[in-house]
Structures are given as C-alpha cells and as structure tokens.
Simulated scan of single mutants.
Amino acid sequence: MRMGALKSLKEDYDIIDANFLHFCASHGIFSVEDVLVHDVYLLVASAEKLANFDRLKQGINQLLSIIETCHQPWMNGLEILEDRKQNKHHLSTGCERFDVLLHGGLHEGHVTELVGPSSSGKTQVCFQVASNVAMKLGSVVFLDSGNSFSPTRIMQMVTRISGSAGNKVDGFLQPAMRNIEHHAVFDIYALLKILHQLKLNLKSQTRYRLRLIIVDSISSLIAPVLGGSNAQGHALMVSVGYLLKELADRHNIAVVVTNHMVSGEGGIPKPALGESWKNIPHVRLQVSQDHASNTYGVYILKHPYMASGGSVTFMIP
C-alpha cells in the first residue's frame, strides 16, 4: 500500500468516517505515514477523553490492521528470481573470508540481519563493514540505538584498512569519516521518521550515493512496542521491515540490521522479534566471538541463494 491520504480509505471502510478524519486531522494526521510516526498510545489516550471514544478506537485499530495487511514483507519465488536477475552487486565487508562465504559480500538490495547474544561481536562487524564501505565505496547511514557508535574504533579500522601511518592516514580518514552519517535513534518512531526522510532524500537527490544502511540494533527499537493485544506494535514492526526492504530494493542499497537472541523451546537461543520478523531479512547470519583469540564466527541461518549451515571464522584487529 502506498502512503496515501487517509480520506482515500473512507469509501472502503465505514469506520473511517468524517468524524474520525477530523479527529486525526486535529492531531496532524492526514496520511498513513503520519499514523506510523505518531505514538498511537498517546493518540488512544486523547480519544479516551471524547464521547465517541469507542468508535475512534475502532478506527485506529482498523488503520493498524490495514497497515499490517498491506505491508506484507514476504517475497515469493518469482520476486526472488526477478531480484536475482537485476543488476545488483556486492559490497565487500573488508574481511576476505567473510566475503567468500557470502559469494562476494553484502548483496545490494538485500536486508542482512546479524543475530547473536550480547557481546557476540555484532556491532564490531557493523563497524568493520561501515569503515570499509565508507573508505572505498560511498556513503553509509549508521542508525545507533544504544550509544554504541565509536568514531575512535572507526578511525582504527580505517587506519588498518588503508595500510597507512602517520600523516598519510588523514587522506583516507577524513573522507571516510565524512561518508558515515550517524544518527542516535532511541525509539521506533524516530527510526520511522529517519527512514522516511531517507526515502525522500533518495528520490530528490540524484547525486546522493548511499551504499549502506546499518541499524544497530533493530530489536531494541521494536521489542518495546510488541506484546499485548494491541495491534500497533506488530504493525509498526512490519512497516519498518517494509521500508527497509523498499529502500534496499529501489535504490540498490545494502541494509544491515542487528538482532539479539532470546530463549526458545527447551532453552535453546533463537533470534528475537518472532516469526513475522523472521520473514523480513533476506539474509540471516548468526555472529559469535571468541574473546580470547579475538576471532569472529559467522554462520548462515538463511540465504535466498545458498544453503544454510555455511560458516567461517575471521579476525577484526
């Protein structure tokens, strides 16, 4: 579904009537996009003060249901085949063994998810990829939900990748740092606003060559709005997934998100965010780290073009 005006839904849904549209307009909501970037809990609280609260709440839930239904993130076999035929390339991660495992690196047009428990090295892998892309290939947007972004660590990695020392490294460091656009993002509404702004920028700025989007971590932004009987959290999650896949596909961008692990059946760890989110990433990789030897491991959990189970170890100095 396109991010159209709410009034366009009036003919198909009785609950979305003139009164409901007037209520939404009073809160600056005129489109589906406006609904997504508002705190729906506050919207419901505002509706509770009005005499027609029950009907307004039904209208809000109807909108969330429409969003969830229309923003399905799954790809069927034909879509995957067409995606494979498109002229898309790979972005090197900067780690040769990692690139070999992925048959060239991160696939442009794909959402790649790095999953693993705390301190498994997900953020370090993000730094490595961001440093390599920013230094050699183009712009990176790094969305940081946990104050984990480290310019010092990026500097160390760029210095190592460049193989330079002393004053010579400045010729690589300054352009690379300028190529990384960092945003601190602490809730899902801020994430949606930034993604929508990126979408507008990419449409209007033909010279803006964004190559990589990193969200570290996606689960810390989505998990707080999930749970309970309210459909809002699930609709927001699906909408985030839809936007990431749309940005990746339409603009040949590689998207990397990180996700933590939770306890599954029998206490076996599994990626967080449930079955619906599981279908959003094209590629799902499990990351581990051996702190004693400073080696990292990557295991393929899901990939559209290769069998699961492949793995490799590598170092990030």
Rank of each mutant, 00 (worst) to 15 (best):
D39A: 04
L106W: 06
P281G: 04
F23Y: 11
N259G: 11
F98C: 08
P151D: 12
S164M: 15
K85Y: 03
E246A: 11
C70Q: 14
S162R: 07
A223W: 01
E275G: 01
V129N: 07
V257D: 01
M135Y: 09
S293P: 00
N294S: 14
L212C: 09
H183V: 02
F98E: 10
F149C: 08
G297Y: 13
D39T: 02
R84H: 08
V35Q: 07
M1P: 03
G227I: 03
T123I: 13
A134C: 08
K193T: 09
D34P: 05
E108N: 01
V262I: 13
S219M: 03
C95P: 06
P224F: 04
A165K: 14
R84G: 00
C70M: 08
N76Q: 03
P317V: 02
S263Y: 09
Y299S: 07
K199V: 00
L36Q: 06
A307I: 08
K49C: 05
N52C: 12
R2I: 14
Y299A: 04
Q286G: 09
P151M: 14
S8A: 06
A307W: 02
R2Y: 12
I300F: 08
L43I: 09
H196Q: 06
H251P: 02
S162C: 07
G266R: 15
G266E: 14
A184M: 04
L6N: 05
V129K: 01
E82P: 00
A25M: 08
R178K: 11
F149R: 14
N87M: 11
I15S: 13
G28Y: 08
G163N: 07
H282K: 13
D187P: 04
E79A: 14
Y189V: 06
M261E: 14
S92C: 01
D216G: 04
Y13C: 13
Y296E: 07
T313A: 06
S219Y: 02
H183Y: 15
Q58T: 08
N87Q: 10
K270A: 15
H182D: 00
L101A: 05
N76G: 06
E265N: 09
G241C: 08
L192R: 01
I29M: 07
L9Y: 15
G4C: 11
S308D: 10
L191V: 07
I222R: 00
G171S: 11
G171R: 09
G138T: 09
R97T: 13
L102F: 09
C95F: 03
D99H: 07
L301T: 04
D249T: 07
D216N: 09
S26V: 12
V185P: 02
S204I: 03
D187M: 07
F127V: 01
S118R: 11
R153T: 11
K7R: 12
I194T: 09
L137H: 10
E68N: 09
Q72W: 03
L301F: 04
S150I: 00
Q156T: 14
G77T: 06
Q289E: 02
H89K: 10
L63Y: 03
I15V: 15
E108A: 10
L42K: 13
L192F: 06
R209P: 00
L36E: 10
S8I: 05
